[in-house]
Design a protein around this nucleic acid. Sequence first.
RNA 1: GCCCGGAUGGCGGAAUUGGUAGACGCAGCAGACUCAAAAUCUGCCGUUCGCAAGGAUGUGCAGGUUCGAUUCCUGUUCCGGGCACCA
Length: 962
Amino acid sequence: MEYNFKEIEKKWQKNWDAAGVYHVPNPAIGAEAKPKFYVLDMFPYPSGAGLHVGHPLGYIASDIFSRYKRLKGFNVLHPMGYDSFGLPAEQYALETGQHPATTTAKNIETFRQQLGNIGFSFDWSREVRTSDPQYYKWTQWIFLQIFNSWFDRNENKARPIADLVEIFEQTGNIPDNGQRQIPKTFSAAGWKAFSDDEKLEVLMEYRLAYSAFGEVNWCEALGTVLANDEVVNGVSERGGHPVEKKKMLQWYMRITDYAERLLTGLEKVEFSEAMKEMQRNWIGRSEGAEIDFKIRECDKTLKVYTTRPDTIFGVDFMVIAPEHELVAEIVSDSQKASIGEYLSYVKSRSERERMAEVKQITGCFTGAYAVNPFDGREIPVWIAEYVLAGYGTGAIMAVPCGDQRDYLFAKHFGIPITNIIGEYYNGEEANPTKEAILFNSGFLNGLKMQDAIGVALGKIEEERIGKRKVNYKMRDAGFSRQRYWGEPFPIVYRNGVAYALAPSELPVELPFVENYKPGPEGQGPLANIPEWVNVNSREVKLQLPVWHLIPDPLGIEKDDQSLVDVSLKRETNTMPGYAGSSWYFLRYMDPHNNEEFADRKFTDYWNQVDVYVGGTEHAVGHLLYSRMWTKLLYDLGYIGFDEPFKRLVNQGMITGKSYFFQVSDEKIISYNEDEVEPVFKRFKHGHNYVDTSARLAKSEFSKYSTESAGDSNELEIQWQNQGGDEFILLKEESEKMSKSKFNVDNPDEIIRHYGADTFRMYEMFLGPIEQSKPWDTKGIEGVHRFLKKFWRLFFDETKSRIWTKENPTREELKILHKAIKKIGEDTERFSFNTAVSAFMVCVNDLTDLKCRKKEILEPLLILLAPYAPHISEELYHELGNEEFIVDAVYPHAELKYLTESEKEYPVSINGKLRTTIIISLDELQEVVEKIVLANEVVKKWVADKPVKKIIFIKNKMVNIVV
RNA sequence: GCCCGGAUGGCGGAAUUGGUAGACGCAGCAGACUCAAAAUCUGCCGUUCGCAAGGAUGUGCAGGUUCGAUUCCUGUUCCGGGCACCA
């Protein structure tokens, strides 16, 4: 009987589906629940291209782990869904006029089918789609929770905005009662005197989701604002369009308030060190001091931020950002003209230019001087674009002997340099050392810089000329997109003041639009629908503003809003892609709940995601946002944990191989195994053998050239010469799979050829899960052969069934238990490639012994089931089992089969020469005697030297030191 | 420039805490079965000296610690990734 994977896989996929084996209901309330385990994949954006072989890598890994944990007795939550809002669907809609909902649904259908072919154990009854109104109702609801919260800095957590109103009513916004400091200060009486709109305006400064005018990354080509992490090198991450800074009224997440907790939270999660490092860099914490410098000319102080207060005596000039508010006030009459010129120069520079010309040194003297608070030195104040307005105080004290940028600036403008680090400064470049002993440094003289930092800080605080300060590079995250295909905000405006809609108004559904073109003045497409934008207060219910004392202009409190006639405007922006993905792992726990985003009982039960599998590309985006939302929901008491993901596993990319002839820097001729495309573009290479020694002869070149490509003379091709033949060699490159590079391999093809089980095992066999690796189908035969070999332990080609119920020998049991131990350990630590190898070793051993015994084979099937579920299921039933293999119990390795009473041990002398002896593990005394005996045996090598030491190493070998 | 990774046969990769380096697979070579092919099976397979037994050498490079180093330490080269005027 042949291994007919097609039939087997179809059959079991159907049976599993019909029996609902992968449906995992929530535990009954009050019932004793099994221990839980939550395995989650980063849900995909359903793109039109469908799956390629790189996609399922993580899904296969998580599927193996889920199945394994289930066999180990855990109640495993393993759901899947779609991050279905997003830019590409909308771009596609713009081009073709099809509604994004239609194309998204179609794409999801394709994904679902492709995923189904691979035999995953997802619980599809829990599927979520972020674009489903029943889902985004709760995205909007959570947004309102964030909107209605502020961050208490004393308690270091989010609290309801109502608490803040209470504080204001009692004490105003005095410092040190936990609020962020804003320029506008007021007493309790002052607060009470504010109008409604003024109060709301003040509260907006505190809300964790707030709207404000801000410099945003505006992308003209995409017609939208992008978050910092969506901009790469001054161009958009998607599409590579130029991005410029623009002031716009935008919604933001006040993620900076969580900076410290996002940082310290990393200590209690298992992410790779690289991933943690990326997040730490992004958050960018630095400890330092804010120091006040008096301006000589007027009664102003210049506040600078520095991490090196120890260098304060080395300050030779000050630099403030061109946008700094003090510029206009301190500029001297004689410098007014040149400063004005410089400012307009800075304004003319695009973000891109500034990025590209980092090395260029520009700046302008203001004519003003600052006074060093310690020695009274007068220090010139400059403006320069290299100082950023948005970081620290937007002003720095420049120490040219210690900071390379300051050094170059000083040299460029001929500012004299003070040396405070003695011989550590060579006069040719700055030295940022902390080792030097300080010179020319007043009270710090003779101190090592490292120690001087603390001394200087102490003095600064003591003399009240500054204070310790921690800064973060991370900025608040933009939360508005001028797009159609996203969650509408549950916000309306009255005279430009934002009001939250009442929860009963949720979901605010996306209205239908005729076209997806941007609205006027950079607004989103929703602005094109006046009948949706303009609403009357009779039609919608608003949330009550939190202070109850003021008159109720909208009639909200009396619940008869209908009596009041106020015209309102809806927010026309939509939420960004990361909104829906910041909390989806919670929805899976209770996906059909209409009353809450998820019942607290179930979020308590399923709790954190135990293993989260996905790519590294979300390091500073999705992962930070979802960590923040989780912390916020925790602070407000909606969930019981403040880190969403306990352990993160990053699967590497599977790269595609492209083959091509490079004819110039940009132009290449693609290569396929048996054809060279006569166009200058890449071409799919197929997945058979490619003749890597293929050549393109100069004489053949014109055949493949097209008009647009030009001829060989123009392209300056480096022809190689061999025996009079001129040619170029084929080049090979591994790169990210993408449609445009024609290097995409589709899993369906592989599955048709070899089956899902082979595909699954092969993807795991390729190499460590975390590592990027090129897709290469050459090795797939080996894995397929393994499965066929495994099959032949049960069936013969002619006789059919050959497995027996004989009792296994000790040797056979040893092979089995070794496999159980090894494969179990490997699976546990996500080392699936070595686990697959262990299967191969085990099956080879059993084949050698001609072992066909049920007692050996059945446990092996359970081991194999997570990796190759279809063939295991078939054979498990063949052995006479009625239930599904997922409900089996994972075997455990018994030690008695793994250890031996006697074994051959290698013996080395001084770690070099070797012989072997056979000894018993049980009696160590005997071991030593035998080693000494062995010493006699090997005397010809050691030449009568006395034995100094006998080392018995890890029950594995013996070393004699002479 | 800064911060993380990594470097092992012809190739992908094993070696889990310092303990017989190269598991497993691919490719290759030789053989069995076959009219033949496919499929399957057996043996060999880092380099080097040797008919062989056996020896020498070998984990990017140079050192160090150790009885013993792919593993730990110092320096160095190359490759990959992240950040990039953040004071």
